[in-house]
Simulated scan of single mutants.
Amino acid sequence: MYNDNYETCAETYVTLRIYSDEQSPNELTEYLGIQPSKTHVKSQKNELQTNKSIEHNGWFLTTDGKVNSKDSRRHIDFLADKLLPINFKIKELISKGAKIDISCYWLSENGQGGPTLSPQQLSKLGSLGLDFWFDIY
């Protein structure tokens, strides 16, 4: 089902992004029972714009560096398989005002082609009930 050498892709990964004003990154980690790849705390200085403060707590789980494949389907499955058992927690966070989505970074090898989503990934993403978007270059 996977093509780990996906010829038209130079690099890909997916990231779960949680933004919350109510829960700190440490509280989100404890509640979800998953170690994030990265976090940031509201009011810290933004790494990219040193004169601007971060407006929301952020908690991020990415497949970057964890999944060795150029097939976005493998990355999506890796992340979805971690989230589906705790989907009720994701829904609870959303009900408390958290903004949650999944992004897929996809870098073209030669300007042609694009990522593929199979019914398996579409079903899992649908079960999660989260917005999913592509960042394609």
Rank of each mutant, 00 (worst) to 15 (best):
A80H: 04
I76V: 13
D64G: 10
E92I: 05
T50R: 12
A80C: 15
I54R: 07
L61V: 14
K91L: 10
W59C: 06
I86S: 04
E55T: 13
I90F: 03
I54L: 15
E92N: 13
R74L: 13
A80I: 05
D81T: 02
L79A: 06
V67Y: 10
K91M: 09
E92T: 12
E92D: 15
T63C: 07
K52H: 06
N57W: 04
V67G: 07
H75R: 01
K52F: 07
G58P: 08
N68A: 10
D64N: 15
T63Y: 06
S72K: 10
S72V: 14
K70V: 00
I76D: 00
N68H: 09
K66S: 08
R74Y: 01
V67T: 12
H75T: 06
I86E: 01
K91Y: 00
G58L: 08
E55F: 04
I90S: 02
F60Y: 15
L79T: 07
T50Y: 08
G65K: 12
I76F: 05
R74H: 13
N87V: 12
F88H: 12
N57K: 04
G58S: 05
E92A: 14
H75G: 05
K82Y: 09
N87A: 09
K82N: 08
D77G: 02
T62I: 09
S53G: 09
S69L: 07
L83F: 09
S72P: 10
V67H: 12
E92M: 11
L61T: 06
L61I: 13
L83C: 09
L83N: 10
L84R: 06
D81M: 00
G65F: 01
W59K: 03
P85Q: 08
I54Q: 04
K70R: 13
G58W: 02
G65R: 11
D71I: 14
D77R: 13
S53P: 12
T50N: 12
P85A: 08
T63Q: 05
G65N: 07
K82Q: 14
L83R: 10
E92G: 02
R73T: 03
E92L: 04
L84W: 06
I76P: 04
S72L: 14
L61P: 13
K52I: 15
I54T: 08
K89W: 07
D77Y: 01
